[in-house]
Design a binder for these strands. Structure first.
Length: 139
DNA sequence: GCCAACGTTGGC
DNA sequence: GCCAACGTTGGC
């Protein structure tokens, strides 16, 4: 299994909205960047990810699960773009902020810091476990 | 609201 | 195939 990070501006799509979708989940539409799309294509159902609020909050707030592999994005006719479906699993006990990530040498290599504009990013198993621990959240 | 970073588009 | 122009993202 692999780990990921999904960025969203809470103004556009927030963690609370994701939670409200429940087990049905929500299509992660709107990605128009090849690298982000390729990351989604690499996902398998059962993979887990952090839900990150960009711009407002700038923190990881919850855990999501990939429940459908990448398929055509229903919001565009352009066949280049597709997306996975994710559902909320549970919130982090305590959000982990971008500032914390930047300040922590163990997380300094995260794509969140290195590739600020990439909206769907890989997270290493080490980073995953470490952030869960920081947030006081059970795996 | 500004601006840096960077991906994409289109003219040549 | 190069590169300038442009648009978007996201931190500050």
């Amino acid at each position: 299994m692999s780990f990921w990070l999904f960025k969203s501006e809470p103004d556009a799509w927030s963690w609370d909205q994701q939670v409200a979708k429940g087990a049905a989940g929500e299509e992660w539409t709107g990605v128009r960047n090849y690298q982000a799309r390729n990351n989604m294509r690499a996902m398998k159902p059962g993979d887990l990810g952090f839900f990150y609020h960009s711009n407002i909050g700038k923190e990881m707030v919850g855990i999501v699960e990939v429940i459908r592999e990448s398929a055509p994005d229903s919001t565009t006719e352009d066949p280049r773009w597709d997306c996975v479906v994710i559902k909320a699993v549970k919130p982090l006990n305590r959000p982990v902020s971008l500032d914390e990530v930047k300040a922590d040498p163990k997380l300094a290599e995260m794509a969140l810091v290195k590739s600020t504009r990439l909206s769907v990013q890989p997270v290493t198993p080490e980073e995953w476990a470490y952030i869960l621990k920081l947030s006081g959240t059970e795996a």
